[in-house]
Nucleic acid binder design. Sequence first.
DNA 1: ATGAAAGCGCTAACAG
DNA 2: CTGTTAGCGCTTTCAT
Lengths: 328, 328
Amino acid sequence: MANIQEVAKKAGVSVATVSRVLNKQAIVSDKTKEKVEQAIKELNYEPSLLGRNLRTSESRLILVLIPSISNPFYAEIINGIEDTAISQNYNILLCDTDSNPERESIYFNLVKNRMADGVISMDPTVNKERLFELAETYPIVQCSEYDEHGYIPYVTINNEEAAYHAVKHLIDVGHKRIALINSDEKFLYARERRQGFERALAESNLPIEDKWIYHTEEVDFEDGQKAMAHLLELEEKPTAVFAVSDVLAIGALKEIHSKGLKVPDDLAIVGFDKISFSNMTYPTLTTVSQPMYTMGCTAVNMLIDRLQGKEVNSVMLEHELIIRESTT
Amino acid sequence: MANIQEVAKKAGVSVATVSRVLNKQAIVSDKTKEKVEQAIKELNYEPSLLGRNLRTSESRLILVLIPSISNPFYAEIINGIEDTAISQNYNILLCDTDSNPERESIYFNLVKNRMADGVISMDPTVNKERLFELAETYPIVQCSEYDEHGYIPYVTINNEEAAYHAVKHLIDVGHKRIALINSDEKFLYARERRQGFERALAESNLPIEDKWIYHTEEVDFEDGQKAMAHLLELEEKPTAVFAVSDVLAIGALKEIHSKGLKVPDDLAIVGFDKISFSNMTYPTLTTVSQPMYTMGCTAVNMLIDRLQGKEVNSVMLEHELIIRESTT
DNA sequence: ATGAAAGCGCTAACAG
DNA sequence: CTGTTAGCGCTTTCAT
């Protein structure tokens, strides 16, 4: 556990010189550089980032906020975040809030306490007020979920359009009675996807029936099951379902099967997110793919730009409808 | 962004006193405490952990190593880790190595550079040599996967026994031709589960046939599909399959379906891990449940004990066979 | 090209 | 009970 002083002493130079070869920017003569490197090797020296970070007053840590690590939707985004962060010498502090304000508060404090330089929030359940407050002082980027009226830059997709495409596809293959399994409309993405759903219906002169719109409490498999169970009890049943997340769609699929019905013959279904499991269901799930990896990369790049004081603009990425067995 | 000095000045006390009220251990008179708290509030002061950590030479960060964040098996363990870490004022640096030695190397350096106080490794693909080397200097705990000959403490389950139970169950419901979809036997858990598999077979005087043992390259859905495709091409087909992970089992299930076969009538299948998906497949998957949350908690507690210089002993937790539709 | 010295923000002896 | 002071390990002027 040698420190920079011991290295300097052993190499017969000053600590400043050691620091210089460590950071390879300032000019050091080849001879001294060699001496220093020799000393570093002999002492097995590893510079302490604690010291460096205090001095430069940065932590080089990015706080990444997600509502639940169990939700596979976030996995691929995080891959993108991690790759990009590492390439820029940052690391990530992955925090799942479990939609728990207390936890969120702990994580926000990490930023205030300078243990993180900025935050990427992917948590739709985040306390908006507190996030905005934090954003006044610290760089924040929102990823996937965002706030339409806020000034926090974000990277997302066009949810309205994506939902429109999904529902349009159901209409195109002949469905007229289409249900929506939505999550709580306190989430912007839920409101936007509903709008897309309604636009597609309206465009084809199909009625928008309240009874075919179900709002779940959470976004777990069980919520999808419950939603579908409800829809299947209706007098006039839908022939197709658009669920705003694959997890919900998969729960719905499960429920359909356990009622002895067949997909897509009795009921077609389309999900959202293209999580890897959506290709393992029987039948495979038609879904909307988001460029998750790219979203993660973009979010990090935006945040680092902000960290460097640059202006950044919000970004909207392309989505893609993946047609699989559950609708055809 | 006030610092401790400004607070001290405003409160008319020394920085030491401010530090004392911050850490609420030393005795400070109520009057001065109030003054300090007032100053803190007025200045909106938040203590910098960078300064504190440098001084106490700890980062209060725990490095958590997983091979892939997309593998749902780790999600619940991480929940346990996070809850326990937070309750002890630690935070976690979640790092997925992607089984990439270069990344691993970056993460190991985080420890050497004092950005993390210790590591919990759940990565079976980790470079053992380098892990052992690191363990000579820094506290490390292994979770789930471990090394039988190493001196690194671990928390895990009895894999041999768990596999034995799973296979015994298949035998009990009448199967005689049982295949094993195993991952690479460079992993200890894979070797142990194979032993359990063989013990169950031997005990019932069933032959252990090489042709019914398949080793996958990775542990993704696709590997399970490939494995099953292979087994279904055999002249003499098995009537049951034990897969050493739910992800593999779900891939196998998919393949069975797409060949037009039925589970469990044509082929029974049991997985391992009890990931949440395993209850959403059709039919639902019989599997072995590990106490994942508890494993995470235990790992953190062990690590913190080590961080405090205490001796810790490895722990083996209980597993449970969850019988569902895929075998009955 | 290199060194001396200041200081990032905090904690912890030590003194009083 | 409180203040003074010395660092933790590093980077970065400012001289030389």
